[in-house]
Measured scan of single mutants.
Amino acid sequence: MSSSSWLLLSLVAVTAAQSTIEEQAKTFLDKFNHEAEDLFYQSSLASWNYNTNITEENVQNMNNAGDKWSAFLKEQSTLAQMYPLQEIQNLTVKLQLQALQQNGSSVLSEDKSKRLNTILNTMSTIYSTGKVCNPDNPQECLLLEPGLNEIMANSLDYNERLWAWESWRSEVGKQLRPLYEEYVVLKNEMARANHYEDYGDYWRGDYEVNGVDGYDYSRGQLIEDVEHTFEEIKPLYEHLHAYVRAKLMNAYPSYISPIGCLPAHLLGDMWGRFWTNLYSLTVPFGQKPNIDVTDAMVDQAWDAQRIFKEAEKFFVSVGLPNMTQGFWENSMLTDPGNVQKAVCHPTAWDLGKGDFRILMCTKVTMDDFLTAHHEMGHIQYDMAYAAQPFLLRNGANEGFHEAVGEIMSLSAATPKHLKSIGLLSPDFQEDNETEINFLLKQALTIVGTLPFTYMLEKWRWMVFKGEIPKDQWMKKWWEMKREIVGVVEPVPHDETYCDPASLFHVSNDYSF
């Protein structure tokens, strides 16, 4: 037999072997998808029940369902290793196997995995149920939502704001400190077992692309791009910072340095994350009609249902689908009040099986009107990829998912749209002054938050990498806050605090 014939037969044999492996992989994935749908849905439903009704029974049910899901994933991840990716030609099959071969938290021992889940659930519970009591009246206690958040959004009393700011960190942050220390250790162990340098590197892996249509993007490039983007917006932020400082000097004349940092408790919310609520103090042309339409919403008797129905109309107007019937029947759109304790931070849920929901303790404000559009943007994205195989139902990356939500809320905030839905009067006219007011309001929300987020994530990356010793977490946190964000702590904090974890995203294990 000629050498060319042998070569042809060899190629046929290799192709047949690849085809056999690929067919086996497809069969394996079909079985996995069928089983995963049910187990993931049960786990998601148990998590939803806990988040909307925080009880010991629900946390136990959530843990049990989560353990079943984790055990299943660990088993299936091991089985998926049997299919070598280099022998799979079908890109859809390869991407699913690649996702499943990534072990995630299931790489930890059973004891450590359970401990990590306990830590995460405990931190979430402390954050959502933590109360601050009035020292003069111990029976008068406030949760973060709505009590403390209400103070931080609306109060102009310097000392009341300081009390709310400090009490939240003292009551909740200190409880979270030992848990967060354990969390860092276990998450790093999980990341390294998955061949990442640390948990920050694991997060950045979400943005990594290897040879898809000839395109590559590394975790290191992400760090470079983040640094570059921050340097680009820094001059604009510094101008905004100086303008806000001048306006705060008028409101709090004896508390603000004309050349120094801004006190952290005066920036519009509990964390200084969004400066939106400073608009009334900083509006350049106050004689113009108010483009913050909160009062109009209240006057027109809007409620949470109306807010979300208007958001749905907005999405339908640009060619996107209505929310499902189940969305309206199962979402929690208002604070249950004293009936039950719930996690009030707005979140969009894709539970699986076409079950999409939003959890939000909606208030009738323009801020929540825009947040509703943001969260519904997440749901629209979830619905758009719902037909994909189970392992591919995700956003391109976390940042893109947020961008989908944010672009919709930005569009909904324009005076033209607000006028079209009757929240600005029919005779409202846009001119240079109203446009400047609008742009300032947008800058308070968007530009003001960028250094906050950059600095927070930089601190977390450094902590996970071990570049900040545990006994210097708070020292470095406030050094970076002053240097990068231009914000100063109103009272000193020692290493018993854990100020970063006083933010939902940190205590609940979300990256930005």
Rank of each mutant, 00 (worst) to 15 (best):
Q98M: 02
A71L: 02
Q60E: 04
Q76F: 00
E22Q: 01
L29M: 13
N63D: 10
L79G: 12
W48T: 10
Q96P: 01
Q24L: 14
E75L: 01
L45W: 12
P84S: 09
V93I: 06
F40N: 01
M82A: 14
A71P: 13
A25L: 14
F72N: 10
L79E: 15
E23Y: 00
Y83G: 15
Q76C: 01
A25H: 14
V59H: 01
E57S: 03
N90C: 00
K31V: 14
A46H: 10
L95C: 04
L79Q: 12
N51D: 10
E35Y: 13
D38I: 14
D30T: 01
E57P: 06
N51A: 03
L95V: 07
A65E: 12
Y41V: 15
E35C: 00
I54E: 11
N33A: 11
N33Y: 15
M82G: 01
I54M: 10
L39S: 07
E22G: 09
L79C: 13
Q76H: 12
M62K: 09
K31M: 11
K74R: 04
E56N: 04
L29C: 13
A71R: 01
T27Y: 00
D30N: 12
L95F: 09
Y83A: 09
M62S: 10
A25G: 04
A25Y: 14
Q60N: 06
E23I: 03
I54D: 11
N61P: 08
T20H: 12
Y41T: 15
N51F: 02
S19G: 13
F40K: 00
A71D: 06
N49L: 01
Q89S: 01
L29V: 14
D38K: 15
M62L: 10
N61F: 06
E75H: 00
N90K: 00
N61Q: 04
E57F: 03
Q96T: 12
Y50Q: 12
Q76D: 03
N61I: 02
N63Q: 08
E22L: 05
N51W: 05
W69H: 12
M82P: 15
Y83W: 12
S19M: 09
L73E: 11
E37P: 12
V59F: 05
K68S: 11
D67H: 04
W48E: 08
K68G: 11
D30H: 13
Q102F: 03
L29P: 06
T92N: 00
E23C: 04
Q42P: 15
E35V: 00
E23N: 03
I21M: 13
F72P: 09
E75V: 00
I21K: 12
N90A: 00
N61D: 09
Q24N: 15
E37D: 13
T20A: 08
Q24F: 15
L73V: 06
N63G: 07
N61Y: 07
N51L: 10
M62F: 09
E22R: 13
L79I: 00
N33R: 14
Y41K: 15
N90D: 01
Q96C: 10
W48G: 11
Q89I: 00
K26H: 10
Q60S: 10
F28N: 14
E56F: 03
K31F: 03
V93R: 12
E37F: 13
T20E: 09
L39I: 01
N33D: 01
E56K: 07
L79F: 01
K68M: 11
D38R: 14
L91R: 01
W69V: 00
T92F: 00
N49A: 00
E37G: 14
W48M: 11
E22K: 12
Y50L: 09
L95K: 01
D38T: 15
Y50G: 09
Q102T: 02
Q102H: 09
N51K: 09
Q76P: 13
L79D: 14
A46Q: 11
Q96V: 13
N64D: 10
N33V: 11
Q60Y: 05
F40E: 05
L29E: 10
T27G: 14
S19Y: 04
M62N: 10
Y50V: 09
L39F: 05
N51M: 05
T20S: 04
Q89K: 07
L45Q: 12
L39V: 01
Q76L: 02
Q42M: 00
Q76I: 00
M82T: 14
N90V: 00
T92R: 00
Y83S: 14
D67M: 07
S19P: 02
L95Y: 01
A71M: 03
E37C: 12
F72R: 07
M62R: 09
N90P: 00
L91I: 04
M82F: 05
P84I: 13
K68F: 11
Q89R: 04
Q89V: 01
E56V: 02
F28L: 14
F28Q: 15
L29Q: 13
D30M: 11
N33Q: 04
T27S: 02
Y41P: 15
L79Y: 00
N90Y: 00
A65P: 13
E37I: 13
V93W: 13
W48P: 09
N51H: 04
F72G: 12
L29S: 13
W69M: 09
T92P: 00
Q60F: 06
K31I: 15
A25T: 02
N90H: 00
E56M: 07
D67T: 08
D30F: 12
L39D: 13
Q76N: 14
T92E: 00
E56W: 03
A46Y: 10
K74Q: 08
N64T: 10
Q60C: 06
L73C: 08
E75N: 00
N49R: 05
I21A: 11
Q102E: 02
S19K: 11
L95R: 03
Q96L: 11
N61L: 03
L91P: 01
W48Q: 10
K68A: 11
K68E: 13
L45H: 14
K68C: 11
Q60W: 09
Q24W: 13
A65T: 12
E57N: 04
T27C: 00
H34L: 15
N61G: 07
D38W: 14
Q102P: 05
P84D: 10
L45G: 12
K31D: 15
S19N: 09
A46N: 11
Y83I: 05
E56P: 03
A71W: 03
H34G: 12
N64E: 10
N64I: 07
D38C: 14
I21L: 12
E56D: 05
P84V: 13
W48C: 09
Q60D: 08
W69E: 11
A46L: 12
D38S: 14
Q42T: 02
D67L: 02
Q96F: 13
T92Q: 00
S19I: 01
Q96K: 12
